[in-house]
Simulated assay, not measured.
Amino acid sequence: MTTTRKPRRVLGPAGAGTAPRKRPVDWEGQEQAVLIRWLLGERQRGTAVGQLYDVTYHVPNGGQRSKATGAAMKRQGVKSGVIDLVVMEARGCWFGLYLEFKASPPHTAPLAPSQRDWLTLAENRGYCAALAVGLEEAKAVLREYAEWEPTDVEFCDDPVRTMQSGTEWRKGE
């Protein structure tokens, strides 16, 4: 026996009656997921840009949340405007890449002042900072970054320091 479920009704704003409204589409999130799948495919093909897959991660800062969840996340360190993707690979005399990703037109959201501030902060702290609008531009940024020479991180005359505070994580269990 097959049953058909009625579609869930999402009510509009207060006073709008009972007219259902469409759920918002996360165009940026969908495109960014395609970018990460592409990067994984490049890794599997053994390309230079594919080497960035293992050191690239998303900072889940955006999205729709309840006020309580948003407040809890803020207490845990979430900050407005933090860049979408981080590539933890030092190249081209930079310590890494901060990539702010925006969906392709016509779904491109404007760059928020807080995002511009984070891009500036990242660049001022020694990180390459880039804005990519759409999938193809993001691929181009990652390909170009992958072509740059690895940064020699042994720039200090002092020996590499290790933390004396915290729990030792380098020893086996």
Rank of each mutant, 00 (worst) to 15 (best):
Q30N: 04
Q30L: 04
Q30Y: 02
E31D: 12
E31V: 15
E31A: 15
A33L: 06
A33D: 05
A33K: 02
A33W: 02
A33T: 09
V34Y: 02
V34Q: 04
V34L: 08
V34D: 08
L35C: 07
I36F: 06
R37A: 15
W38R: 07
W38L: 09
L40E: 15
G41M: 13
G41C: 10
G41Y: 10
G41N: 15
E42Q: 14
E42S: 09
E42G: 06
E42I: 09
R43A: 13
R43L: 13
Q44F: 08
R45Q: 12
G46R: 05
G46H: 08
T47G: 00
A48R: 09
A48Q: 08
A48I: 01
A48D: 09
V49P: 01
V49M: 06
V49K: 03
G50P: 03
Q51A: 15
L52V: 03
L52G: 01
L52A: 03
L52C: 01
Y53G: 02
D54T: 15
V55S: 15
T56S: 11
T56W: 05
Y57K: 01
Y57F: 14
V59S: 12
V59I: 14
N61C: 09
N61E: 14
N61F: 03
G62V: 07
G62S: 14
G63P: 00
G63T: 07
G63E: 01
G63A: 03
Q64Y: 12
R65C: 09
S66C: 11
S66F: 11
S66K: 10
S66I: 14
K67L: 15
A68F: 03
A68Q: 09
A68L: 07
G70N: 06
A71W: 02
A71T: 04
A71Q: 09
A72P: 01
A72E: 10
A72H: 11
M73S: 00
M73V: 01
K74N: 03
K74C: 01
K74T: 05
R75P: 04
R75E: 14
Q76W: 03
Q76V: 00
Q76T: 00
Q76D: 04
V78T: 03
V78D: 00
V78K: 02
K79T: 15
K79E: 15
S80H: 12
S80T: 12
S80R: 14
G81A: 11
G81L: 13
I83T: 13
D84F: 00
L85C: 00
L85E: 00
V86K: 03
V86N: 05
V87P: 07
V87Q: 08
V87D: 05
M88P: 11
E89M: 06
A90M: 07
A90R: 04
R91Y: 07
R91Q: 10
R91C: 07
G92A: 06
G92N: 08
G92C: 06
C93M: 14
C93I: 07
F95H: 08
F95C: 07
F95V: 05
L97N: 03
L97P: 02
L97H: 03
Y98M: 10
L99K: 07
E100C: 05
E100R: 04
F101S: 05
K102N: 10
A103K: 14
A103L: 14
